[in-house]
Structures are given as C-alpha cells and as structure tokens.
Write a protein that binds this DNA or RNA. Structure first.
Lengths: 206, 206
DNA sequence: CTCCTTCTTGAGTGATCGCTCAAGAAACCG
DNA sequence: CGGTTTCTTGAGCGATCACTCAAGAAGGAG
C-alpha cells in the first residue's frame, strides 16, 4: 500500500525533472553535467534535488533507467522480444537505430553508449554501470542468435558470439556517427550494408 | 636554423613527458584527466608543464598529434597510402585495428574516437577538434572508395560515401568493444564479418 | 667572475565541484 | 487551533579545478 502523503508536498513534477536530467546526461555525459546544470534545467534548488533523488550517482542511475523505459532506449529490447525471426529483429534494430539516433528532437546517439566514456577514477562505478548494461545487451544478442542457429534460421557454421559482437559494434558505431552529424539517410545506408552480411541458411538437401 | 639554447635547460625529456600525457588522455579522456594527474605522471610541477606546453588544451592537441604519429594512431593513414587496392587497404585497417585496439601494452581502443566524448560546453572546442579529425578520416575513406569505383575495383552500383560511413562505424564500434573488454580474437571476427559485405565487382562481359 | 636568460620550485589564486545545514513554508492530523 | 512531517530556500561547507607568480637555480656569453 502507498502510504498517505504527509508533510509539505513536492512543488515540482518528479518525472518531468527526471526527464530534464535524462536529456542533459544524454547530451553531455555524467561528469560533464554538473549539479548546477541539472538544478537549472530541472527548475529546482540543489537541496530539493538531493531530497528527491539522493546523490548525483543515484540520479544518474534513475535517468538511465528512465531512458531504458523510453521508446528511444527500449527499441532494442522491444525488437528482440517482438520479432519472430532473428533476422527480422536485427533488421528492425538497425533500421530503428538509424531513425532514433539521428532524431533531432533529442540528443544524438545512445545514452548507454556515450554518457560515461570519460570519467575520473572516483566515478569508475558509473562507467562500469553502463559497460555492464552494454555487455548485457551483447549477451542478449548472442542468445537470440544462438536460438536462431538452433532453429535452423542461421547455418550450422554461424558463430553467434561473433555475430553478436559485430552487430553491437555496428550499432555503437552508428551512435558515434550520429553524434558526429550523420543523417538518418546515411545511418540507414550503414544499417543496410551491415545486414548484407547476414549468413545464408544451410542449403536444403536436394 | 635552431637557435642556441640559452638559459637553464629543461630537466625532463619533453617527448617522454608528452608520451605520458598521451597515455593518460587515451585512457581517461580530456576532462577526466586533471593537471595534477598529468604532472604526477610526467614527473614535473604545474609551472613546468605550462612553460613547456602552454595550457591544457595545447597539451592535449600536442598529445593527439603525437598519437597520430605513433604506430597505434597512424595505421589507418599508412594502410590507405601503402595498399595498392581499396579492398587491401580496408582489410588491413580492420585487421590491424583488431590487434591494436585490444593490445594491453597501452589503453584500449582509439584516442581520437573516445578521448573527448563527454565535455562541458567550455571545452566544446576540444570535442570539435577530435570530431573534425574523425570526419576528415571519413572523407579519406570516401575518396579512396570513390577512386576504387572509378578504377573498376568496385562495381558501378557501389556507394562510396555509404561504404565510408559503414567502415568508419565498424572501426568506431570495434574501439568501443575493445574498451568494453573484447579480445583480439573477437575483434578479428568483427573485422572479418564487416569485410564480408565488400561489394562484388561488375561481371566481366562474356 | 658577472650578467642574462630560462626553467624549477612552492605557495597560492579565484572559480567551480558535489553536497549539506538551519530556518521557514506548506501540507495533514487531531 | 497546535503539532508533526516533509519540502524549499539561501547560504555556505571542504575539496578540487586550471592556472599563475615570485624567488631561486642552472646553464651560456662576455
């Protein structure tokens, strides 16, 4: 049960403020975004931020989780669970990445890929947090491709782990290209080229 | 002519100190590396650093230039100028990237790709400096592929710009994978998969 | 030797970092 | 109404940031 609200109510919308933090972390990354930047964008004072979210690292983790629930952050998981074939899943992932990473209504590229690249040793746990997320996605890729191999969608010579790393690398490269200014058209061409390597299935016996 | 050395000579080796700076910037990136980190690794005091290199941004630019002259930073340019065919050049680039990015004798991945991903607005020029380097490499890729198309090495249907972005994305993804812990074997498999998409030449008339 | 130049040393600049605290304000409960 | 709880406000904490300065040290020139 949700306890009754007691005391002075919060004067700002927590989700709205969190979305502002997502935007800033997405654009600049963890350490390059200061508490002052955050309170400015969220429209609150530092003490309110700390009362509502804990400290900067806890706010960042909440921001990453919120990003992961948003359409821009969830499209990979959605494709993996919704598409019946592995090829369909990766084709959709690449196509949607091209559209989302270059969408100018939000920062370019992927927050999980680029928000904690340059950190001081004291924030190494933040870097590890995102790296673990990336490597978890890698394992999901590999598991989906292993299933495709077992199902016969991929040939018996296919290497699920190598293919998983390959598609992960292409997606991370597309994120970087988007942050460097690539258009949706260009990213879509990268995606199409990447999908050209999809292994042909075993020849049916004649 | 080199002017005569006057005044008290420098007590440290400038190139050795610069290499220490390269290593730190490569590992952590521009803003996550403090002057204190640098002076500690270089074995000098702040005033000596400023006397020898100017300010932090000038030191970073010198470090990037030194990286670009090192084998780890020059291998792409070397392959483009030394290999007679475009396919040979990109095959070599991908193969060497797999070896260099995962080499544990220095930080993982590519400095140009990862050293200025997360910067505050006041250091935006540093981010732009590396981005311009990346986009210059992209143009070199495109020019080499355009030449291959003119030479008939690539089919008349090939899209040099799209291929350039594709290979750049794969290389940037390989750098990220290396920083996330991928081994040389895994990176080599990514490289092989990427090269599988090389367009087949026009069929010779029969 | 003295003079001149340049580098090194040690201390310290103002600004910004993440974060906190005391006091006041705004809700509900009885 | 008073009492309790929680949030907001404004000021400011110690630490670290990039950077600088005055004084001294180490070389060549004359």
């Amino acid at each position: 049960m949700r306890p009754m609200a007691r005391g002075r109510p919060r004067t700002f919308d927590r989700d709205t403020a969190l979305n502002a933090a997502v935007h800033l972390f997405w654009e600049r990354g963890y350490e390059a975004t200061s508490i002052g930047d955050l309170t400015g964008a969220m429209g609150i004072r530092p003490a309110s931020l700390y009362a509502a979210f804990g400290d900067k690292k806890a706010l960042f983790r909440e921001a990453v989780e919120a990003y992961g629930r948003s359409p821009e952050g969830a499209f990979i998981s959605n494709a993996l669970t919704e598409e019946p074939t592995a090829r369909g899943a990766f084709a959709r992932i690449l196509r949607e990445a091209a559209a989302i990473y270059s969408d100018r209504s939000h920062p370019a590229g992927c927050l999980t890929i680029s928000a904690a690249t340059n950190v001081t040793p004291q924030d190494a746990e933040v870097e590890k947090y995102l790296r673990d997320l990336r490597n978890t996605n890698l394992k999901r890729f590999e598991a989906r491709l292993q299933r495709a191999k077992s199902d016969g969608e991929l040939p018996s010579t296919a290497n699920p782990k190598a293919l998983a790393h390959y598609f992960a690398a292409v997606i991370q490269g597309m994120s970087q290209q988007a942050r460097d200014g690539a258009t949706q058209e260009t990213l879509t061409q990268i995606a199409a080229q990447a999908l050209n390597t999809w292994p042909l299935p075993d020849q049916a016996p004649t």
